[in-house]
Write a protein that binds this DNA or RNA. Structure first.
Lengths: 108, 108
DNA sequence: TATAAATGCAATTAATCGGTTGCGCAAGTT
DNA sequence: AACTTGCGCAACCGATTAATTGCATTTATA
């Protein structure tokens, strides 16, 4: 099963799970309490997140704590970087435009 | 149809389309030449990208040029930011660890 | 040792996805 | 005027998705 970080974060529930466990490692049961779905549904999401290494697990007795693993998220950031440059440039251009408009305010 | 930027960039073809038109605005036909699929398939992807405002269109006669719109991509960057902070911290910690190890190299 | 709790796995299902094919329409071309 | 080109739209189809339900397994507790 080819799992891909982009596909993993496409689902809003999975994004919420990541946000939760980024703050604190949690068990599937504890996670499920934050959602309107069943524990099994949450576990399936966790499985997908684990498959693309966005989460790690750590067993404590019969409980399994899932941790967020930021490493793989870099892939998204790396893909995003060139685009980010584009909107920053666009922002700069808008900035310059506004500066110019201000300067010419009394001209026309 | 509820479209969401995260879902839009989940598909590899759509990510490739964005990369292409970020460099230069293109028509659906021109885009389709870069892929192994039909023009209609590409058009469907474009439609999805347009629905979440990742692309703008500009008609020239019977041709439609699709432009990349970086604005909406910020949503992804914004969501990513806190996580990015985490892996940077982790990197810093690793960095400190390495520093400490170096310093203690002769101790144990 | 019997029972309860925490979890994973498998089967099922409705919905969505990505793709193809066929069609219609508007804009150029002959 | 007839034809070609570029495009969007609708219908259809197989694959995938997200969710539920039921069951098995391991670990803790009474």
């Amino acid at each position: 099963m080819r799992r891909d970080v982009f596909q993993a974060i496409a689902d809003p529930t999975r994004r919420a799970i990541l946000t939760l466990i980024a703050l604190q490692a949690m068990t599937p049961n504890a996670l499920a309490e934050h959602f309107d779905t069943s524990r099994q549904a949450v576990s399936k999401h966790i499985k997908i997140l684990a498959e693309c290494q966005l989460v790690d697990q750590q067993q404590h007795g019969r409980e399994i704590y899932y941790h967020f693993n930021p490493e793989k998220m870099k892939e998204v950031a790396d893909w995003l970087a060139p685009f980010q440059k584009m909107w920053e440039e666009r922002f700069d251009r808008l900035d310059n435009l506004l500066e110019n408009l201000k300067a010419q305010q009394n001209v026309r």
